[in-house]
């Protein structure tokens, strides 16, 4: 079996399960982010706002001469905002919120697909792996997948914290959850694209590693099957002879 055939076999395996993962992983991702916010700030969300993402994107396209500018602005457009409004001051001040931005959802969906493929390849290897050396190689693939997922997950965070000037960039999320210091967050801010690309690279590299092992195992199994069949034929031939 070639790599391509093996990859296709794993991708097309159980389509309903695949669809469930593509939808389920992003949902789980945003649920985890929301739980993290609730635990960090110790208050439940008390407002939700829906935005006309399609209408707003159309307006951006219409009013932004450079397409590259428009694409960047649309990528930061909100669809849903769920957060906590503090009514102790004035008529309420939104303290924190989780924002659903379709572009970022797409990034998480791509992460889901890559994760699913790597998981299925891992499962294939696990089912067919027999010796310790192969298990060590498997670990490298799993580690790369893990690192990639963390990087993409971090760079896809869309949390908003009402500190003046802060916009829902990925480092705001890291700072909100106390994962990085303020100065580290500012220094990391421009690296979003690189972190994303690095994350996807790790995921893809991990996938290739697992695919490589899976393909070798598949070939070995095929070879063993063939030898077994040949043995059986030979044995059968001897008997007839």
């Amino acid at each position: 079996m070639t790599r391509k055939q093996l990859l296709l076999q794993e991708i097309t395996r159980d389509p309903s399960n695949t669809l469930l993962a593509i939808v389920g992983i992003p949902i789980a991702y945003y649920v985890i982010l929301m739980i993290s916010l609730v635990l960090t700030f110790e208050n439940m969300p008390n407002y939700i706002t829906f935005y006309d993402w399609i209408g707003n994107s159309a307006e951006i396209l219409k009013s932004t001469p450079a397409l590259s500018d428009a694409a960047k602005i649309i990528s930061e457009e909100w669809l849903v905002e769920i957060g906590f409004m503090n009514y102790d001051y004035g008529f309420g001040i939104s303290e924190w919120s989780l924002n659903i931005m379709p572009f970022k959802v797409l990034l998480v969906m791509i992460l889901s697909v890559l994760l699913l493929i790597n998981f299925r390849l891992f499962r294939f290897c696990k089912r067919n792996a027999t010796c310790g050396a192969k298990k060590t190689s498997l670990k490298a693939g799993i580690a790369a997948t893990g690192i990639g997922s963390v990087l993409v997950g971090a760079a896809s965070m869309t949390m908003f914290w009402v500190v003046c000037c802060a916009s829902p960039t990925w480092v705001v999320g890291l700072a909100m959850l106390g994962l990085v210091s303020v100065s580290a967050a500012l220094a990391l801010d421009p690296l979003e694209t690189y972190v994303l690309l690095l994350g996807y690279s790790f995921l893809i590299a991990g996938g290739f590693r697992l695919l490589d092992i899976a393909q070798r195992l598949a070939s070995q199994n095929e070879k063993m099957e063939m030898e077994r069949s040949r043995g059986a034929i030979e044995m059968g031939g001897t008997a007839y002879a």
């Binding site: 102790d88 001051y89 001040i93 303290e95 914290w161 909100m176």
Partner: peptide, 11 residues
């Protein structure tokens, strides 16, 4: 240095 919103800082 902590990053804090006005309302949380005041609280």
């Amino acid at each position: 240095l902590k990053n804090q919103s006005p309302a949380v800082g005041a609280a």
